[in-house]
Each structure stands twice: as C-alpha cells, then as structure tokens.
C-alpha cells in the first residue's frame, strides 16, 4: 500500500476520469499502485502533486456536473503546457501498459528527465492494458485461453 493514501485515491479518481473506466475496474487490473509509483519515479513527487492538486480543484469546482468537469479538465489540465502531456501519457500508460517519452517540446521547456524513456511497466501491465476490454478482445495467449475458445464470438464487456 502506498504511503500517501489520499494522493493515491486522487490518482485513482483522475485515472478514472481520463480513461473512462471506473475505479473498481482500474483497481481490478492490479496495476494502479505500480502506475502511481511509475509516475512519481519519472516525474518526481512535486510534479505529480501539482497535477493532483489541479485535479482536486477542478473536481471541487464542478461537483457532480460531468459536462463541467469535462470542460474544466480540458482547460486546466489538457491545455496546460506542462500537465497536458503528462495527462495524455497517463492515458497511454493505462491503455497499453507502456510509458512513452514526453514530447520534445515538453523536454525543452521543462528539462530532460532521466527515466523518461520508452518502457513496459511490467509483464502484467501489457496483459492488463485497458485497450483489450475497450475493443472487446483478449491479449493474445494471455487471457481467455482454452482450446477452441477462439472460435467463440468476442465478449464485449460493458465499459
């Protein structure tokens, strides 16, 4: 369990909003804690804290209003020169289990980060990627195996 439980919960909420999957589904992948520490490892605690702080403010200001949340997220996070690329990377991380380097413009503006390279977080991260349930398929050879199951129609999960 991560030391800062409140920050971790904020990370989960942010992840849920930007991926479109519920916190239950995200936790169900078993990757939440490892992605949170990956983010901190690459960006440092201060940058992650800043991202979560903006997210908390956006949540507070919009309450239950989903449309307002969407609007304010785009304005405060996705259009932000520093936080936008990080949020987009977070989405990619959840969907494919891979960290991709931040854009060149980001690195020029905010500096190179030592661990900001392309890597798969863990073997499980690949098979637990959200892209698989999103397209109603299984990661080949890793889930839904069993002789002949490939001849059955795909089961599209509710997303």
């Amino acid at each position: 369990m991560h030391a800062d439980q409140a920050e971790f919960q904020d990370f989960l909420s942010l992840s849920s909003v930007v991926t479109g999957f519920t916190a239950f589904q995200l936790q169900g992948t078993g990757q939440a804690e490892s992605y949170f520490s990956t983010l901190i490892d690459i960006l440092g605690e201060a940058t992650v804290a800043a991202l979560l702080q903006v997210f908390r403010r956006v949540q507070r200001e919009t309450g239950e209003d989903a449309a307002a949340l969407d609007r304010l997220l785009r304005a405060a996070i996705f259009s932000d020169e520093k936080l936008g690329p990080i949020a987009r990377n977070l989405i990619k991380l959840w969907y494919v289990g891979t960290w991709y380097p931040l854009p060149a413009a980001w690195r020029e503006a905010f500096g190179e980060l030592e661990k900001d390279t392309t890597f798969v977080v863990s073997p499980a991260a690949y098979t637990e990627g959200l892209l698989w349930p999103a397209i109603g398929a299984n990661p080949a050879g890793a889930k839904g195996p069993g002789y002949g199951t490939w001849s059955a129609p795909p089961r599209i999960p509710e997303v």
Binding site: Q27, G144, P145, G146, Y147, G148, T149, A152
Partner: peptide, 27 residues
C-alpha cells in the same frame, strides 16, 4: 471444452475482486 473457457473467466473475475479494497475496512 467450453467449461475450460469458463474457468479462465472465473479466474479473471476472481482476480479483479481480490485487487479491490473493501471500503470501510483498514486494508
């Protein structure tokens, strides 16, 4: 043969439950 496919899905769902904390318990 179909039952074997069921077993893999049982595993997936079981794992999903086990990775989720029960709210209101300490850990």
């Amino acid at each position: 043969l179909d039952a074997v496919g069921d077993m893999f899905r049982i595993r997936e769902t079981a794992s999903q439950l086990m990775r989720n904390p029960i709210p209101g318990t300490s850990g």
